[in-house]
Nucleic acid binder design. Structure first.
Lengths: 110, 110
DNA sequence: CCACCCTATGTAGAGTTCCGATACAGTGGT
DNA sequence: ACCACTGTATCGGAACTCTACATAGGGTGG
């Protein structure tokens, strides 16, 4: 499973509340991803066994909207996602290299 | 400038020590990226004005190695890179929902 | 009744990015 | 002669992203 930024956003959204029922449009709002990015990501994660999903059991006519497909992390997915995000955060650490940035004419030693 | 994970790794490596002279092989080691990924990233960052670079002035015969090409962040690059990394970190927030250290193996003191 | 927006999932295709392989060039070892 | 090492760099196919678009039902307005 290749971790990219869209993938990481999806994993972060799912990990934030592992018990919540998440569906496509919901994740689009949480991650800010367009549907053309999100759904392929969900399919890849499912194919990799990180996610499982099933259709909401409602009558679309009665509910007045299309049925949702709910996605949730598998046990494997939770572990892998946590590891992947931890690795990613470790690779992009906070900087703070001694000097505080846009100092007005402070430039000391060099 | 599109921020991807390889791009972010390069920016993080350069921001960690903005004064250091960084060259390709050096950044390959720091970021773990292969040359076929790193050099296109460096070129894209240069084209975007975030990086500038020049050749090391040595005699390769006397030094016993090829000359290096040194890359460093421009003033614009420093600002943009900081912003980009901050945005990325914000997009991939820390989880820790309801987690008691259930790890049987090697989980240290925290 | 058609146009249009809303919820919802999903595909198409162009463009961008990634990364293994490869190239080049010089040093140095066996 | 051949391989390993330090360097920079490109090529090309696979993978990924994302703007459109497709589908489908409900509701509202002209």
């Amino acid at each position: 499973m290749r971790i990219t930024i869209p993938v990481a956003k999806v994993l972060a959204a799912l990990l934030a509340e592992p018990d919540a029922q998440r569906y496509g449009l919901d994740l689009m709002r949480l991650t800010g991803l367009p549907s053309g990015t999100l759904y392929p990501v969900l399919h890849r994660l499912s194919a990799a066994g990180w996610l499982e999903s099933d259709w909401e059991t409602i009558d679309p006519v009665a509910a007045g909207r299309p049925a949702r497909r709910y996605y949730r992390l598998t046990a494997v997915g939770v572990t892998q996602a946590r590891q992947a995000l931890a690795d990613l955060r470790a690779a992009i650490p906070d900087d703070r290299p001694s000097w505080g940035g846009t100092e007005p004419t402070g430039a000391p030693a060099w």
